[in-house]
Simulated assay, not measured.
Amino acid sequence: MPATDTPVTATSVTQTLHARRSVRAFADRRVDPALLKTIFAAAQRAPSGGNLQPWQATLVTGEPWQAVKDAVAARTAMGREGYEPEYDIYPKGLTEPWEARRFGVGEALYASLGIPREDKRGRLAQFMDNYRGFGAPVMLFLHCSRIMGPPQWSDMGMWLQSVMLLLVEHGLASCPQECWAMYGATIRRTLGLDDGQILFTGLAIGYADEDAAVNQWAVPRAPIEDVIDWQGF
């Protein structure tokens, strides 16, 4: 493994899983590209059906990253007319228990920032910070060929999880952001991707601002009894 100025900070899969969270405030600190290459090389061990490895990613920083932010800002200024969704991020008619989980995590996030429900402007401003990557110096855009189907999308998810855990192992942080898919065509044009590609998600990458309140609230998880049906044990 090439030497870097960033030490490995997690020593087991369990520790890394517990340490990983979606970070929504990043420190103003450069990320070593050599370290990222090491991480992505390791992530190539992620499994995929038939070894298709359908994931493709475009990594941006500096001026290219700013160009994406500027292009999307122009679309968000158009309101709903600016939407160019690649897919439905959440199912239409979402029912329980999933709707309660989605609502609950949103309320907990705003509570950590002291933004009450009646402060619509404050909540909108916080949401729009998504499209600045929460200050992350690096953004990964994950995409694949449009010929790929649901099994290959699940492969992309396994690759993405591998990347996120490896980032934690090396002292970095991330935030997966499907919200970028709301402006998929704009991002694809800005990145020079052809229409044969579909944008899945963004992944903000950097070093966490450890003092930010938005990075400190506890994110709940359902108990295993709610998701595992034990048969024959």
Rank of each mutant, 00 (worst) to 15 (best):
E99H: 10
E99D: 14
A100C: 06
R102F: 11
R102S: 03
F103E: 09
G104I: 08
V105E: 10
G106A: 11
G106R: 11
E107A: 15
E107M: 03
A108S: 14
L109K: 05
Y110W: 07
A111T: 04
A111K: 13
A111Q: 11
S112D: 08
L113H: 04
L113V: 02
I115S: 08
I115V: 14
P116Y: 07
R117L: 12
E118A: 15
E118S: 14
D119R: 08
D119W: 08
K120T: 13
K120A: 04
K120P: 00
G122R: 08
L124G: 01
Q126P: 03
F127H: 13
F127D: 09
Y131L: 14
R132G: 12
F134C: 03
F134P: 04
G135H: 05
G135I: 05
P137G: 11
P137N: 07
M139P: 00
F141C: 01
L142D: 01
H143F: 05
H143V: 04
R146S: 03
G149A: 14
P150E: 07
P151A: 11
Q152A: 15
W153F: 13
S154H: 01
D155N: 13
D155H: 12
M156L: 15
G157Q: 06
M158R: 14
Q161Y: 03
Q161P: 01
S162R: 03
S162F: 05
S162W: 02
V163A: 12
M164E: 14
L166M: 01
L166N: 02
L166H: 01
L166Y: 02
L167A: 06
L167E: 05
V168Q: 15
V168A: 05
